[in-house]
Simulated scan of single mutants.
Amino acid sequence: MKKLKIFTSKIKWIEAFGDYVRVVTEEDSNLVLSTMKSFENDLSKEKFVRVHKSYIINIDKVERFNSKYAEIGMTKIPLSRHKKEDLVRALSFS
């Protein structure tokens, strides 16, 4: 098993991938055997918001968003209807 050090400031988003979680950083992405819940509990609530059952995003990386998507670079991350308010609240405090 390989240990990997990832700085949270470099994380763009985290995506559910079956029994794994894909951590996308500024440099690359890595699959980690973990759960979204585990990541959600370990990450800073001020910087990371769960915006969909399959996505946690770093609010510092969000370039724009609308009622359906948050955009990080060229990637559109879907927003669930129930989680959109959490993103708006988090962005207004950042």
Score class of each variant (00 low, 15 high):
T8P: 02
T75S: 15
Y69T: 13
K61Q: 15
K47N: 12
R64T: 11
Y69W: 14
F93C: 05
W13G: 02
D86S: 14
V51G: 03
A70K: 11
I59E: 08
S29A: 13
E46N: 14
V24E: 00
D60S: 11
Y69H: 15
L43D: 07
R64K: 14
K5Y: 10
K12T: 05
F17D: 15
E40Q: 15
F39M: 09
K5G: 00
E46V: 05
I56G: 07
F17K: 10
F17T: 02
T8D: 09
V62T: 08
S80V: 04
F65P: 13
E71H: 13
R81H: 08
I72W: 12
L87P: 02
R89Y: 05
V24M: 01
V62Q: 01
G18A: 00
E27V: 04
L31A: 06
F65M: 14
P78M: 10
V32P: 00
H52G: 06
H52Y: 10
K12F: 07
L4E: 07
M74V: 11
N66F: 07
S94M: 07
W13R: 13
A16R: 12
F93M: 11
I77D: 05
I56C: 07
K45I: 07
D42W: 00
K3Q: 05
L31P: 02
A90M: 02
V32I: 15
E40A: 08
K10P: 00
M1W: 01
S54Y: 04
D19P: 07
K47C: 10
D42K: 12
E40C: 06
S80C: 04
F48P: 08
V21L: 05
L79T: 06
H82F: 10
L4Y: 00
F7R: 07
F17I: 03
L4A: 00
M36G: 04
Y20T: 04
L4S: 00
P78G: 11
S94V: 08
L79W: 13
K61D: 12
K61S: 15
R50G: 05
V23P: 03
I6K: 03
N58K: 07
K5R: 12
F39Y: 14
K2C: 00
I59D: 08
V51L: 04
L79K: 13
L91A: 03
T75E: 15
F39L: 08
S38T: 13
K12H: 12
L4H: 04
N30I: 09
L91S: 04
V88D: 02
E71W: 15
A70P: 13
N30K: 03
K61V: 07
G18C: 05
K61F: 14
N58R: 08
S44Q: 11
T35D: 09
L43Y: 07
M74C: 06
G73V: 09
A16Y: 09
I59P: 07
K68F: 12
I6N: 02
S34K: 10
D60P: 00
N58G: 11
S54C: 12
K84H: 04
K10S: 13
K84T: 06
V88R: 00
S29V: 02
K76Y: 11
E27S: 13
L31E: 06
E85C: 04
D60E: 11
